[in-house]
Design a protein around this nucleic acid. Sequence first.
DNA 1: AATAGCATTATGTTCCGATAAACGACAACA
DNA 2: TGTTGTCGTTTATCGGAACATAATGCTATT
Lengths: 292, 292
Amino acid sequence: MNELHRSLADRIIRHIRTSDMAEGAHLTEAGLQDILGTSRQPIRSALGILADQGILQKVPNKGFFLCDPGLAQAGAAPPADETSDEAIYLKIADERLSKRLADRVSENDLMRRYGISRLALRRVLTRISSEGWIERNEGRGWTFAALIDSVEAYRECYELRQVIETHGLRSPAFRLDRNVLADLRRRQTMVAEGGWQKLSQMELFETNSEFHEGLAELSGNRFLLSSVQKLNQLRRLVEYRQTLNTDQVRGQNAEHMGILDALDAGDTGLAADLMFAHLGKAKDRKARAEMF
Amino acid sequence: MNELHRSLADRIIRHIRTSDMAEGAHLTEAGLQDILGTSRQPIRSALGILADQGILQKVPNKGFFLCDPGLAQAGAAPPADETSDEAIYLKIADERLSKRLADRVSENDLMRRYGISRLALRRVLTRISSEGWIERNEGRGWTFAALIDSVEAYRECYELRQVIETHGLRSPAFRLDRNVLADLRRRQTMVAEGGWQKLSQMELFETNSEFHEGLAELSGNRFLLSSVQKLNQLRRLVEYRQTLNTDQVRGQNAEHMGILDALDAGDTGLAADLMFAHLGKAKDRKARAEMF
DNA sequence: AATAGCATTATGTTCCGATAAACGACAACA
DNA sequence: TGTTGTCGTTTATCGGAACATAATGCTATT
């Protein structure tokens, strides 16, 4: 059982849960290939893992079928492997957020600290640097960059999102793609109708991100989209750690629906206003909360 | 002669030229340390290279002194080292822009293509991925992402800059730091008074970036700053290849001055309006130009 | 007091070959 | 005809030792 296989298995579960699949549904290898972006071999292994866990049933020469959607809940348990890339990544984020890691660090320090090889560390640092919160020094070592590590940073992040995302909706290049909107609505409806109870913190966050990134994509501006994605990636680090109360989840969900309604009615101006208020609300809530 | 030393030497020359230093000026190791961000050791080597080239004069136990500012021109010649990280980086950008590189590539392909080791390639890919135009696949290989590779992308880039940068100026968190403004003005004046003739394409671009990033920093929003930096990094790839005519350079320069004037007068609203027009002008010019 | 020179230490690079596993294409099955 | 099963090829990981060099603290010079 490989790290890639493990992570693909997790993503397959997320896919099953957030798209609300029915019992007995057929999970084809080629279909998952499009979603996951790897070749079929590792997907087969991941499906194998899930079959071992009893979440899927394997029928020889026919493929894998969803057994009991309820079981997918249990399977979502964390791998708890202390030295997996993902674990190291989260540990670095954690120690950085709680200021236990200095601004400048050397690779050897980190290798010793986490007990991993240089190459494994490099993999993680490459990922972090692509997310934009660490940079390689000229010469030696690495330097951490801006992270959402304070109430003030949080406010700045949301303020920028207000500017960028509302611009996206108002932009003349915005193309109102009914299919995409319908897809976003489907997911939001899923949350409204019970998802807010069933889904984990992480899954709720991902659904939220997909909503905002989906709209950003419709803006027709690739840099706007990538800016929104980058901000979400930073938020992900912090917001995984918090628990939203159910009122907040349902409130956000209702606001998302409102924005979709406005867009379906073709009123992008109203949608932008609603988006501005939506993000403003979150900004203010965080500013009050004791989160750091 | 090391790659780091070589690149530090280049940056020292750039610093000499863009800050308009007088003959005989003393270049201290500690002073350069602040600017370049490495330790004194490699800086010494870089200064040694420049002394060998006759650009600086080394006086034992006293340090390095600027010899003939005119010579710094000649020294700015490219290293022409085919396998330096920088050269590989530019080559990848070039082949990508001219569509000679596919969307998905494997490391081995690239290693063979450029005749470099895996680790050297990794260094370059890490840098590119931190700039956001390539991503590591799960599984194997790398995938290129959106790049400023078309007129349309260019328009999108400038439109986003208009939104972000003007917001920075108008934001209530904007702090009007006279020292920073004076510093920016000094550099712009330097361009106005002959720099537009003397400086290379690359140096003009850097001066331009510093202006915009300097203002973005004053916005007091760290994410806004990093967004502007990221967009500039992408622009750098494309704009190094073009030549601005002198009218354009002087026009931009005058507009920068106008923005600084408005800020010095405390009128951030006017400054934002001017910035909007400034970026809009560039956006339209690029849209008309036959650049690709 | 500030700066350059120098030596020591810690950090990071490079080069293997051996091993693992993702990819892609074709065959077999429903 | 679409899907799974299988296999050879290609691609990337891992670990260790020898080598280069960036960082740093101390000393000498002005």
